[in-house]
């Protein structure tokens, strides 16, 4: 390695080597666990394709035991993958400039023969490359392992935080955002520890915020059923928590308790007739909305990262003192 890239490697090699070792260990563990899981599935002739959804058509206890055994470890891996952007931001992004500014070594580096642009781009590119590879590999491992038992019975569904926040393009984009946010915090606060704290709050905070408001951006699909006939199974969709009845003019009445049942009350059919309801409905986010949500969050993470990156460039151009 040459020039500023050598310096970047020399300064980040501990992080890179530790990260790589953890990743390899993770991959080995996942490979082992998955092989175990697949053996169990074939040994017990579990027809996973037919088990999809809450009301999946699985006979026997084997499928339930399968999920019991795999959900915990999957959650652990999902937690790690979901926390990775925070870890990258705190331990990689924040010291990337923060430690240089705190120790004054930026003055040493920038009074050698290279300009600030090359110095920054080398170290940032190396960190960015590692963040991309690390988050993509972890997200990939999780999907690879989860896929055979995905969206199944009482297992992990696409909309669970352990899955949604831990895989897909948004997980990788979040890692990029974490790195950029940490870098910006280090540059602006000029103290590594303070920058670490700020990065933790910013990245974790944004994750929580997005999880809270995610559903407001996409309209759920309304599933209707005529009269009191049986409703369509929810399957692998995510319930939007919105149930009710349809009146004669076709309007939705968002009140699931309008014809509730308890001893002494008329049955549902009578109640619906009395109140003039022609059918029932419930709202869901179908499984395909995984990608809608993912792309929206990817855009948000990358957009914020771009804004922070522009800020970093402006501050660096004006010089750092």
């Amino acid at each position: 390695m040459k020039g500023t890239l050598w310096l970047a490697w020399r300064q980040q090699r501990t992080l890179i080597l530790v990260g790589a070792a953890l990743l390899v260990a993770c991959a080995a563990w996942v490979a082992f666990q998955r092989a175990d899981m697949m053996a169990y599935i074939s040994d017990h002739h579990i027809d996973t394709a037919n088990c999809k959804g809450w009301d999946g058509d699985c006979r026997g206890d084997a499928a339930y035991r399968l999920l019991q055994d795999t959900t915990g470890p999957l959650r652990a891996l999902g937690s790690l993958s979901a926390a990775l952007p925070v870890l990258i931001g705190v331990f990689w992004g924040a010291p990337l400039l923060g430690r240089e500014l705190e120790s004054g070594t930026w003055k040493l580096a920038l009074t050698q023969g290279v300009g600030i642009r090359r110095w920054f781009l080398s170290r940032f590119s190396l960190a960015l490359g590692c963040a991309l590879v690390g988050s993509a590999v972890l997200a990939g491992l999780l999907v690879w392992w989860w896929e055979p038992v995905s969206n199944m019975l009482d297992g992990l569904y696409w909309h669970d935080g352990f899955i949604f926040n831990a895989t897909g393009p948004a997980a990788v984009a979040c890692a990029v955002f974490g790195l950029v946010a940490g870098t910006a915090a280090g540059l602006l606060l000029r103290r590594t520890v303070a920058a670490m704290g700020a990065t933790l709050v910013a990245v974790a905070g944004l994750r929580v915020l997005l999880t809270a408001v995610r559903h407001d951006w996409v309209s759920p699909v309304v599933r209707r059923s005529q009269g009191d006939s049986a409703r369509q199974y929810i399957g692998t969709a995510e319930s939007a928590g919105d149930f009710g009845f349809i009146d004669r003019s076709g309007n939705l009445v968002h009140d699931a308790a309008a014809c509730g049942w308890s001893p002494g009350l008329p049955d549902m059919k009578t109640c619906m007739a009395q109140k003039g309801f022609t059918g029932r409905f419930y709202a869901v986010y179908p499984t395909s909305d995984f990608w809608v949500f993912q792309w929206i969050e990817t855009a948000i993470f990358l957009g914020l990262a771009a804004v922070l990156m522009a800020l970093i460039c402006v501050v660096l151009r004006r010089r750092v003192v």
């Binding site: 120790s103 004054g104 070594t105 003055k107 040493l108 009074t111 023969g113 290279v114």
Partner: peptide, 14 residues
Amino acid sequence: RDRTAFLSQDKPLY
């Protein structure tokens, strides 16, 4: 940059 060398007051080194 090529013609200048600077020793800062805090003498920073890695």
